[in-house]
Simulated assay, not measured.
Amino acid sequence: MLFIFSENKNTPKKFTQMKKLLLILFLMITTSGAFADTYYQDSLKCPLCDKIFEITEMGSMSSFGSTYDFQKQGAVGDYYKLMVKSCPCCRFSGYTSDFLNFSNHSDTINLIKHALVKYDTIEMTDITECELAADLYKCLGRSKANIGQLYLNASYLLRSDSTKTNQRIQMQDSAAVFFIKALSMEEFAPNQIATIEYLIAEMYRRTGKFEKAIVYYDKAINNKEQADWIKEIATKQRILAIKEDDNNEI
């Protein structure tokens, strides 16, 4: 919607000022709304225990750049918190698609039930949901890259919590391990490899494993398939590793 205010020499000055103020307020409201994150309610049926439960899904968001480990920044709201869903009854966890496209083969069900046992007495949090989903992915033989991504998402959720530094480091170490396995199994296209090598280097730098970080920064920098932007940021972040700077805020 666009408001057009016309004026002439007979328009009272006070009225003109009021219209301008209303225009400014309108622009402020519409602009702030355009960059907000939005949500909607939905429901899921657990494929393991048939429990139907309510979930919140992300409707829209506005991302303006990212941190150096690729966490989206901007009006992203609870984007990372809402990624993984968990059944409130049996605790089956995964992305929404995991609930909708589940194979109910008896062997699969038994594997999942066995994996869920260790979570019976553990408090479910956003972090636990990611860990549980990763364990289920291991049972189901999902790609190492997808497992690594779940650990990476958990590390994002722990970024600003200084009381859980050790847990954050554990998630980043696990992400690095599974991304390395994914590389060895050729799960990435050639033009994606340098990006993953850089991300592994970032995980190691952030956990204080500087020598390993430098190895993977060098792999990314020297990868012939790498994009120019990867070489630029890998070179920049490599300097931090040389200085033994494990800053996790950037």
Rank of each mutant, 00 (worst) to 15 (best):
Q17T: 09
C90S: 07
F5L: 12
I55D: 00
Y39Q: 11
C87I: 10
Y80S: 02
R205V: 11
M18Q: 06
G59Q: 11
D107C: 05
A133E: 01
V84F: 00
A175M: 11
K9Q: 14
E197P: 15
T108W: 01
V215K: 15
D50K: 15
G141E: 00
E249N: 09
K231P: 08
Y119G: 07
C139D: 02
E232V: 13
K243D: 08
E244M: 15
S160E: 01
M203Q: 10
S162H: 11
Y68W: 09
T16K: 14
G59C: 09
L27F: 06
A194Y: 09
A115P: 08
A75G: 05
G59R: 10
M1I: 12
K51A: 02
Y80N: 03
K209L: 13
K219F: 09
S162Y: 13
S160Q: 04
M61Q: 01
D228A: 10
T207I: 14
C87G: 04
G59A: 11
S86G: 04
T38Y: 10
S43A: 08
I52Q: 05
Y198G: 11
D126E: 03
K209H: 13
T125H: 02
G148W: 09
K19C: 11
Y68T: 11
A154E: 01
K236V: 07
P88C: 08
S86V: 08
S62D: 00
L2G: 03
T121L: 07
K13V: 14
S174V: 07
K113P: 13
M28H: 01
K113I: 12
L2T: 06
G77S: 08
S103G: 03
Q41P: 15
C139F: 02
C130K: 06
I193K: 15
K85M: 01
N153S: 01
Y79D: 00
K231Y: 14
A189W: 10
Y198M: 12
M18P: 02
Q172M: 15
K81N: 02
K9M: 14
Y156I: 06
L240G: 05
L27P: 07
S103T: 06
A175W: 10
D246Q: 12
L25W: 01
R91G: 03
S93H: 02
M171R: 09
L2R: 12
Y68I: 13
D126C: 02
N223F: 09
I4D: 03
R206K: 13
M61W: 07
I112G: 05
R91C: 04
M58D: 00
T195F: 11
T108M: 06
L240N: 13
L27M: 03
I29R: 10
D107Y: 11
P47D: 00
L23C: 05
G148P: 07
A134K: 02
A133G: 05
I4K: 12
Y39F: 13
R168P: 02
E123H: 04
I242Y: 14
S60V: 11
D246V: 13
F35E: 00
F35Y: 10
L183M: 12
Q41Y: 14
G33T: 11
M83V: 04
S162W: 10
K118A: 07
Y95S: 00
S162R: 13
Q226F: 03
F188K: 10
G141N: 05
A201I: 13
R91S: 05
Y137S: 05
M61K: 06
T108F: 02
A213E: 05
I109L: 15
Y95C: 00
L136W: 03
I193D: 03
